[in-house]
Simulated scan of single mutants.
Amino acid sequence: MYNKTMIITGLVIFVLMVTFPVWYNGLDAGPLPKPELPPGGEKECVASAAFMRDKHMQLLNEWRDDVLRNSDRVTVTVGGKEYRKGLQLACMECHSNKEKFCDSCHDYAAVTPTCWDCHLTPTEAASKKEAH
Rank of each mutant, 00 (worst) to 15 (best):
Ala29Cys: 07
Ala29Gln: 15
Gly30Val: 07
Gly30Lys: 09
Gly30Gln: 12
Gly30Asn: 06
Pro31Gln: 14
Pro31Asp: 14
Leu32Arg: 11
Leu32Gly: 00
Lys34Glu: 15
Lys34Val: 15
Lys34Gly: 12
Lys34Arg: 11
Lys34His: 12
Pro35Asp: 02
Pro35Arg: 07
Pro35His: 02
Glu36Ile: 04
Glu36Tyr: 00
Glu36Ser: 14
Leu37Glu: 02
Pro38Met: 11
Pro39Leu: 09
Gly40Asn: 15
Gly40Asp: 12
Gly41Arg: 02
Gly41Gln: 02
Glu42Gln: 11
Glu42Ser: 07
Lys43Pro: 01
Lys43Gln: 15
Lys43Leu: 06
Glu44Ser: 09
Glu44Trp: 09
Cys45Arg: 10
Val46Phe: 11
Val46Trp: 02
Val46His: 02
Ala47Met: 04
Ser48His: 02
Ser48Gln: 07
Ala49Met: 07
Ala49Gly: 13
Ala49Cys: 04
Ala50Asn: 13
Phe51Cys: 05
Met52Leu: 15
Met52Val: 05
Arg53Asn: 06
Arg53Pro: 00
Asp54Ser: 14
Asp54Leu: 14
Lys55Leu: 14
Lys55Met: 07
His56Gln: 09
His56Lys: 04
Met57Leu: 15
Met57His: 13
Gln58His: 10
Leu59Glu: 10
Leu59Cys: 09
Leu60Ala: 14
Leu60Gln: 12
Leu60Lys: 10
Trp63Gly: 01
Arg64Pro: 00
Arg64Thr: 00
Arg64Glu: 06
Asp65Met: 11
Asp65Leu: 09
Asp65Ser: 10
Val67Ala: 08
Val67Met: 13
Val67Trp: 10
Val67Gln: 04
Leu68Pro: 00
Leu68Ser: 04
Leu68Cys: 00
Arg69Phe: 11
Arg69Ala: 01
Asn70Cys: 00
Asp72Ala: 13
Asp72Phe: 12
Asp72Arg: 15
Arg73Asp: 07
Arg73Glu: 03
Arg73Gln: 13
Val74Thr: 15
Val74His: 08
Thr75Met: 11
Thr75Gln: 12
Val76Lys: 06
Val76His: 07
Thr77Gly: 05
Gly80Arg: 09
Gly80Leu: 07
Gly80His: 06
Gly80Val: 07
Lys81Cys: 00
Glu82Lys: 09
Glu82Ala: 13
Arg84Ile: 06
Lys85Thr: 06
Lys85Cys: 01
Gly86Cys: 03
Leu87Thr: 00
Leu87His: 03
Gln88Tyr: 11
Ala90Gly: 08
Cys91Leu: 07
Cys91Arg: 06
Cys91Ala: 03
Met92Ser: 02
Met92Asn: 03
Met92Ala: 03
Glu93Trp: 08
Cys94Leu: 01
Cys94Asn: 01
Cys94Pro: 01
Cys94Arg: 11
His95Tyr: 03
His95Asp: 05
His95Glu: 04
His95Ser: 06
His95Val: 04
Ser96Pro: 08
Ser96Leu: 03
Ser96Val: 08
Ser96Gly: 09
Asn97Val: 08
Lys98Gln: 06
Lys98Phe: 09
Lys98Asn: 07
Lys98Asp: 06
Glu99Cys: 05
Glu99Ile: 10
Lys100Asp: 04
Lys100Leu: 12
Phe101Arg: 05
Phe101Leu: 00
Phe101Tyr: 09
Phe101Met: 08
Cys102Phe: 11
Ser104Ala: 14
Ser104Tyr: 02
Cys105Thr: 13
His106Gln: 10
Asp107Met: 08
Asp107Asn: 15
Tyr108Ile: 01
